[in-house]
Design a binder for these strands. Structure first.
Lengths: 136, 136
DNA sequence: CAATCCACTAGACGCTGTCCAGATCGCGAC
DNA sequence: GTCGCGATCTGGACAGCGTCTAGTGGATTG
């Protein structure tokens, strides 16, 4: 696990105590937290951090390329530290979001679309997790 | 253009004056309106309709299969009367959403995903509209 | 020490969406 | 007609998300 301070500095971000605390959690997580969930998670370890700071910090991280902001499910924007291109699966029962590796699914003919200059795309899937032999 | 009253009745919805007014607008539009935009559009023609009614009516239409609710862009859920499967393109400059015909793009290998039961999927693209010879 | 800059805090604010109590409508029964 | 009842509508209250702002505090510089 990389040192959060180093990562912040490499991206031109002053590593203040609050920013490091947010980074320590959000850069490692796979739970696709909303901003308020980040606030709660970080507060558990660093109680003296305010809501506005968490929101500002997350937006800063997105701007500096440390996080992706996703608007997939209802209610709120969620954050994803996985910066490689990938797809998303939304569990309709729980609202949980899973990352799907980019090469698991291919999209064809997308270059042929006339009238649109596509900067980015992804496949968004919705359904339910199969009760296979995997821990929940 | 189909009669909104008939369409509502075919879907088991009592065609009250307010519901017909909402249907007249939202079933024809291509502008992917948010709920509050629907409210404003409908109020322009039928001033005596309340916000709660518009929200209830839109949710009812979604439940009865007249509309899709989409959570693609920031800020709010938008509604789309196009019920066939299709993809979406989000104009990053304006936030405008465009429908992309289902057969313009193909997704491969999606059946091969283990551990997920996929009920629905779509490709979400982001970029800018090209200034081709099309009216804006 | 004073000036300045940056980050943080706490609370106010606006917007979205839901909920509730009460009013009103439509319709069948009498 | 009018009574009663369920469905619908209204307006306002409410809660959550995200932004903004005024003020605070700490570090740096002259």
């Amino acid at each position: 696990m990389r040192n959060s301070v180093t990562v912040l500095q490499e991206h031109g971000i002053q590593p203040s105590a609050q920013r490091v605390a947010v980074a320590d959690y959000v850069l490692q997580t796979v739970e696709h937290p909303s901003a308020d969930l980040v606030w709660n998670r970080v507060k558990a370890r660093v109680p003296y951090i305010s809501r506005a700071t968490v929101y500002n910090t997350l937006n800063l991280f997105v701007e500096k390329g440390l996080l992706q902001a996703l608007t997939l499910a209802e209610d709120s924007v969620v954050f994803d530290p996985k910066m490689e291109r990938h797809h998303h699966f939304v569990d309709e029962a729980s609202g949980t979001i899973h990352d799907i590796a980019w090469d698991k699914v291919q999209v064809c003919n997308i270059e042929g679309l006339k009238g649109y200059e596509i900067h980015d795309y992804q496949v968004v899937m919705r359904g339910t997790r199969k009760a296979a032999r995997r821990r929940t």
